[in-house]
């Protein structure tokens, strides 16, 4: 086995530094392999002010994703996208911000936990979000990720009781992901009513960066969702635009608008 090359920007340190400098964090998402030039979308997100980028490794059965990311995953898979292909593309270009993969546990499990974590490191990926394993099942993955130097990001939901929230805060690495609503990913016309309460509970429990996601679509929603937290993830709204044919420059403009809204506060 070749020694991991240890590139990539450490997730937690980068996000803490930005937060402590007074910025609201912007994390954007692109489905790996969605189009042949998908890395250009990632690149423009970084240039337009994303503080970290989530890269989806498409899975055949994404149970926590709504129609938009389902469609993107299916399209990427139909193009022959594999985890190896996506990670290989990432390894080809060094980025100035942390990269985080988002995927489902079977892809991790099938590869083998240690081997999967090692591949992330080789690709310069420093964090991973695996939303279909709760605390009771995520221990082995957390250990494998930690051993490889990958931050295993855990997710809290509106129904998470305080004792579980404390445990999530203790075990999450990189940041703590707050799922805004009881539901799947996807664009929404308004921000979930449960978002602010969850964000405040998370902030009260931890000093880790607290980032909210699911359903955040517009710059106004991003600013509102970030007000009780340290930042936001915007995924489906950007993926929808790509699916509808948005150019790289247009995605750059959208991310720029999100950045500006967060900076205005």
């Amino acid at each position: 086995m070749s020694a991991p090359s240890r590139r990539g920007v450490a997730l937690e340190a980068a996000l803490r530094a930005r937060r402590d400098a007074g910025a609201k964090l912007l994390v954007t998402y692109v489905t790996g392999g969605l189009t042949p030039d998908w890395v250009d979308y990632l690149q423009v997100m970084v240039e337009a002010g994303a503080d970290a980028v989530e890269v989806g490794l498409p899975f055949s059965d994404p149970i926590l994703d709504g129609p938009t990311i389902q469609e993107a995953s299916a399209r990427a898979l139909a193009l022959g996208t594999t985890p190896t292909g996506v990670l290989g593309a990432l390894a080809g270009r060094e980025q100035p911000v942390p990269l985080v993969v988002m995927t489902y546990y079977n892809l991790v499990f099938r590869a083998g936990l240690e081997r999967f974590a090692g591949r992330l490191v080789e690709a310069g990926v420093t964090g991973a979000i695996v939303p279909d394993i709760p605390l009771e099942e995520s221990g082995p993955w957390e250990q494998a990720a930690a051993a490889a130097g990958v931050a295993a990001v855990l997710l809290a939901a509106p129904v998470t009781p305080d004792d579980r929230l404390a445990e999530l805060c203790r075990r999450s690495r990189g940041f703590l992901y707050g799922v805004n609503l009881m539901g799947v990913t996807g664009e929404r016309s308004s921000l979930s009513g449960s978002a602010a309460a969850l964000a405040r509970r998370m902030k009260a429990h931890t000093d880790l960066p607290v980032v909210m996601g699911f359903g955040i679509s517009t710059p106004e929603q991003a600013a509102a969702a970030a007000s009780d937290a340290d930042g936001v993830v915007v995924a489906s709204a950007l993926v929808r635009a790509v699916l509808d044919g948005a150019s790289v420059a247009e995605i750059g403009d959208r991310v720029g608008a999100l950045r500006a809204a967060l900076d205005r506060g």
């Binding site: 149970i63 926590l64 546990y105 939303p131 279909d132 394993i133 709760p134 605390l135 009771e136 099942e137 855990l154 997710l155 809290a156 939901a157 509106p158 129904v159 998470t160 009781p161 579980r164 999530l168 799922v179 009881m182």
Partner: peptide, 20 residues
């Protein structure tokens, strides 16, 4: 207690479904 039959079984669901 964690719903296993040998190595199989378990409860691999998103956090939002754990209480349910």
């Amino acid at each position: 207690a964690t719903g296993r039959f040998g190595e199989f079984g378990g409860r691999y669901v998103p956090e939002a479904l754990v209480p349910a």
